[in-house]
């Protein structure tokens, strides 16, 4: 059993009388990649800020590396690299100056930073932009710079709040690759996302959050196994007819979900199910067989889709 770097028990955050995070329990182990998955407003960022020792919890227990962030804020933050949901780069400074000064905030020496900055510029593929002012960077470049900046202090725990939002597909894949490498170097990753593929790719373990609570916890594969079937058949009959079909179709498979534009049928074998659908005399306009994903897990748990 490896040691628990982050431990939350009944962790709660209220803003006035609104509960943003509602008594969540989880452990993040050393070296693993842990995800918080959930729709807008689930409380992911709020949880991240409490872990990042920049927001005080309302109640519950929270320890990071065995310490309470409320008592040891600066010491805990020294272990963390934080990529916030909204970039907060220093817009008055250039790319290199941003990396440099961030290192200085941690008290790192100029000599150390000189080498580190070169390494990070290469990591973020921003060598050509080294002297550019932050304002002149594209959204994706800013994101990469924010991520590079979080690494300047060589953190043990890297916290990424929706790291790939705003990145193009290629940049996303490059970032995933970088994150894998960091993980190989022993960095513990804590990631929030509402991209299913990202969670499946990056996370060893994740919690599904909704409305401030944890709905389920496990590895992506385990969650799919526990909460969904192997395959899904998606059928469309046209919007006004979908509703009437649900009852009849429900008899053919383990479970169905009705969405406004389509019906999802859960089964172990999608092709075989589709055949049975036709045999019963139903003729969907379109049909698609796919493997179950975390999206289906989420739908099962909350009755809603993850990305509206």
């Amino acid at each position: 059993m490896s040691e628990s770097l982050i431990r939350a028990r009944g962790l709660t955050k209220k803003f006035d009388d609104f509960t943003a995070v509602n008594g969540i329990d989880f452990d993040v182990l050393k070296g693993e990649s842990f995800g918080l998955l959930g729709p807008n407003g689930a409380g992911k960022s709020t949880a991240m800020r409490m872990i990042g020792a920049t927001s005080q919890r309302t109640s519950g227990e929270l320890t990071i590396l065995g310490k309470d962030p409320e008592q040891f804020g600066p010491q805990i933050r020294a272990h963390l690299g934080v990529v916030p949901q909204q970039d907060n780069l220093d817009t008055q400074l250039s790319v290199t100056e941003n990396l440099y000064i961030y290192g200085r905030y941690f008290g790192l020496s100029r000599k150390f930073l000189k080498g580190k900055i070169e390494e990070l510029l290469a990591f973020a593929q921003l060598e050509e932009k080294r002297s550019a002012k932050v304002e002149s960077l594209s959204g994706g470049m800013k994101r990469r710079l924010t991520i590079a900046r979080a690494l300047v202090s060589e953190p043990e725990i890297l916290m990424l709040d929706e790291p790939t939002t705003g990145l193009d597909p290629q940049a996303r894949h490059i970032l995933w690759d970088r994150l894998f490498r960091l993980k190989e170097d022993g960095v513990t990753l804590l990631i929030t996302t509402h991209f299913m593929d990202e969670a499946e790719q990056l996370c060893d373990r994740l919690v599904v959050m909704d409305k401030g609570s944890i709905m389920a916890e496990g590895s992506p594969a385990q969650l799919i196994k526990d909460y969904s079937t192997k395959e899904v058949l998606e059928v469309r009959f046209g919007s006004e007819r979908n509703a009437g079909m649900a009852n009849d179709l429900g008899q053919l498979c383990e479970r169905i979900e009705e969405l406004p534009d389509r019906i999802l049928m859960y089964t172990e074998d999608g092709e075989e199910l589709l055949e049975r659908v036709y045999k019963k005399g139903f003729h969907p306009k379109t049909s698609l067989v796919r493997r179950s994903s975390l999206e289906d897990v989420f739908l099962r748990l909350t009755g809603r889709t993850l990305v509206d």
Partner: peptide, 10 residues
Amino acid sequence: RLYHGMLATS
């Protein structure tokens, strides 16, 4: 969001 950035460090 400058101070947010500063205060996320040590």
